[in-house]
Computed example of a mutant assay.
Amino acid sequence: MCWLVLVQGEIIAGHGRVMAAQMLGMTEVPALALSYLSAAERRAYVLADNKLALWTCNGFVPVT
């Protein structure tokens, strides 16, 4: 499983996983480079990832 997603060296998803890995002393983590995303696609990905995190922090994920 990929832990984070990078676009031109910038983390667009997985910030918490990176912080947890650093706390565990990890110096490398699996990553997926999505350099082919347009600016609109990148923004959509970030928004969707953030929304998913909000839903799961509340203990449920809507099925809509």
Rank of each mutant, 00 (worst) to 15 (best):
G59D: 02
S38M: 05
E41N: 07
A13C: 11
K51A: 14
A21E: 00
K51E: 13
T56Q: 15
Y36N: 12
E28P: 00
P30N: 01
Y45T: 07
V63I: 12
F60P: 01
W3K: 13
F60G: 06
N50M: 11
G25V: 07
C2D: 10
A44T: 04
V46Y: 03
S38P: 01
M19P: 04
E10P: 00
T27C: 10
L52D: 04
G9S: 02
M23S: 11
L4E: 00
A31H: 09
S38I: 05
T27F: 12
V46R: 05
M23N: 11
L52G: 03
A48G: 10
V61K: 13
P62Q: 03
V5C: 07
E41S: 05
A13E: 13
V61D: 09
V61I: 15
A21R: 02
L37Q: 02
M26Q: 13
K51R: 15
G59V: 00
A39V: 09
N58F: 03
Y36C: 14
V29I: 15
E41A: 06
L32G: 00
L6H: 04
V61E: 12
D49E: 10
Y36S: 14
G9M: 04
D49H: 01
A44W: 05
G14L: 03
L32N: 06
W3H: 13
K51V: 05
F60S: 07
R17N: 06
L6M: 08
A31D: 04
G9V: 04
A40T: 07
L32C: 11
G14Q: 01
R43W: 05
D49L: 00
Q22L: 13
V7A: 03
V46G: 03
D49M: 04
M23W: 13
Q22G: 06
M26W: 14
A31K: 08
Y45G: 02
P62Y: 02
A31V: 14
T56P: 00
T56S: 08
A21T: 04
L54T: 12
G14C: 02
L6W: 04
Q22N: 08
I11W: 04
A13D: 13
N58S: 15
W55I: 02
G9L: 02
A53E: 09
G14P: 00
S35Q: 12
M19T: 08
I11E: 01
V5D: 05
A33S: 10
A31M: 09
G16E: 09
L37C: 04
C2H: 12
A33L: 08
M23H: 11
V61C: 15
W3A: 12
W3M: 14
S38Q: 00
E28Y: 13
L54Y: 15
A40H: 08
G59P: 01
G14R: 00
A33I: 08
T27V: 09
M1K: 13
T27M: 14
A21F: 05
V61T: 14
A53D: 09
L54D: 15
Q8I: 13
A31E: 08
L54H: 14
D49R: 02
M23L: 11
D49G: 01
Y45C: 09
A40W: 04
A13G: 06
A31I: 07
A53R: 08
A44N: 08
M26G: 08
G9I: 05
C57G: 12
A31T: 10
A33E: 09
M26C: 12
L32A: 08
